[in-house]
Amino acid sequence: MLTAEEQKEIGEELAHYPCKQAVCIDAMLIVQRHRGWVSDDAIRDIAEMLEMSTADLDGVATFYNLIRRKPVARHVVLICDSVSCWIMGCERVRDQLCTRLGTTLGGSTADGRFTLLPIVCLGACDRAPALMIDNNLHTNVDEHRIGGILEAYK
């Protein structure tokens, strides 16, 4: 079941488009903002609300990389792995993160605190390497600063 809040937010988006299907990406992002990810049940509920089939909606969901069809931890760490960050040493940052958090790229920490995911260029190439935790961009990251950055996310 979509919550009243989710339904309201989706309803607001409906006013911006001439047809229901056009809202489906917004709808999935809304649900994801509330729940961290989009479950099979959420796919069913959104599809019903927007008069789409589950196959239609999941076809869209699986196309886009920011729609997560698997659960994530409390905080999602997106590490940019694109060219400028690569030149500036994002691989070292990634390895550091993996070691420190005891998980691999794509995985979550045992305490359910962090999920580590790769991301394409975050548009912060002049301040590479960059990473994004939840909605916050962190730039000029290096091995030494990681600890401090992670501290802020409980």
Binding site: Y17, Q21, C24, F63
Partner: peptide, 24 residues
């Protein structure tokens, strides 16, 4: 409209499909 990712959405016609709530 906030996109859900994918570089191809920047291609103007794929972008239109994305705006229509379709595979881009």
């Amino acid at each position: 409209h906030v996109s859900a990712g994918r570089y191809i959405c920047g291609e103007e016609t794929a972008l239109l499909n994305a705006l229509e709530g379709k595979r881009a």
